[in-house]
Design a protein around this nucleic acid. Structure first.
Lengths: 141, 141
DNA sequence: GCTTGAACCTCTACCCACTGTAGCTTGTAA
DNA sequence: TTACAAGCTACAGTGGGTAGAGGTTCAAGC
């Protein structure tokens, strides 16, 4: 049986985070020692590892909860899992393209910066100027 | 003089957000009518537009605050602005590469999914399996 | 001048996904 | 037996807002 600190180390999770997962019902309440300390088994270790992997892949806790549910019921269709993973992939791709637009804009700003005093600074000028803002670029301006 | 709702519409900000910016000292306290309603001038409009642009570019409120400070002092060096923008660019690039790794992993999972019952689901298998996790991939496994 | 109702006001609580702290108790190794 | 690391609970705080309750003010139409 593992103490919470050991479980934390093995899964690369903080102790508080494990207690938090228990609190929101993502991890089951574990057994306790006579003195009230939590003790975990291998099942808990696997479950927590699963959660961490899902989180690393960017799934929200709610999506992770759904995935755990599906994992607990091996007879249900894999298609449901597929839907969740596809949704996640889509979200990741949206975030990537948004960030790529930002990168482009930041690079453009920096390239044109005269590096003199602030009053001539291209970066601030862009931030101040409506006609140069992202919203307009999105419209194709 | 503009009411808060007009300012909100003009800048694409929510009314509550404007009050929040005032609360955290990002926007100055505006004048009020006799009845206590906020009234804004063009300076406020410009400042809020600046903040929105900075936020759209992914700057944190703290970075935005720094940029506003620099903008308020036109004699200071543009180099400081440059540093902040470069820092932001770096952060954006880190986020992009992290998301690209996620995308790759999600695609790999989905490609190998047998689309049968959950017990054969490749997605869940990957999440369950330590040897296939991102942390290992990062180490070159 | 009066009435209506949209827009404003303050205050408080909530969102996600944790993280940190204070003050106390338990487990374990020497 | 003692020392102290590690555990416990409970609560506050993070960023960047958002939502709602319950009350007040402004401005347009009559």
């Amino acid at each position: 049986m593992l103490a919470i600190g050991t479980l934390a180390k093995r899964t690369g999770t903080k102790v508080q985070t494990i207690r938090y997962y228990e609190q929101i019902g993502l991890l089951p309440e574990p057994g306790r020692t006579e003195g009230g300390q939590r003790r975990y088994g291998d099942t808990d270790l696997d479950r927590l590892a699963f959660i961490r992997h899902a989180r690393q892949l960017g799934f929200t806790l709610e999506a992770t909860r759904e995935l755990l549910d599906l994992s607990d019921n091996p007879d249900r269709s894999c298609a449901e899992v597929d839907v969740i993973a596809h949704r996640q992939l889509k979200e990741v791709e949206v975030r990537i393209s948004r960030l790529e637009a930002l990168r482009k804009e930041l690079k453009r700003m920096l390239r044109e910066c005269s590096r003199d005093t602030v009053s001539d600074c291209r970066v601030l000028e862009v931030l101040r100027d409506h006609s140069a803002c992202l919203a307009n670029h999105d419209k194709g301006v």
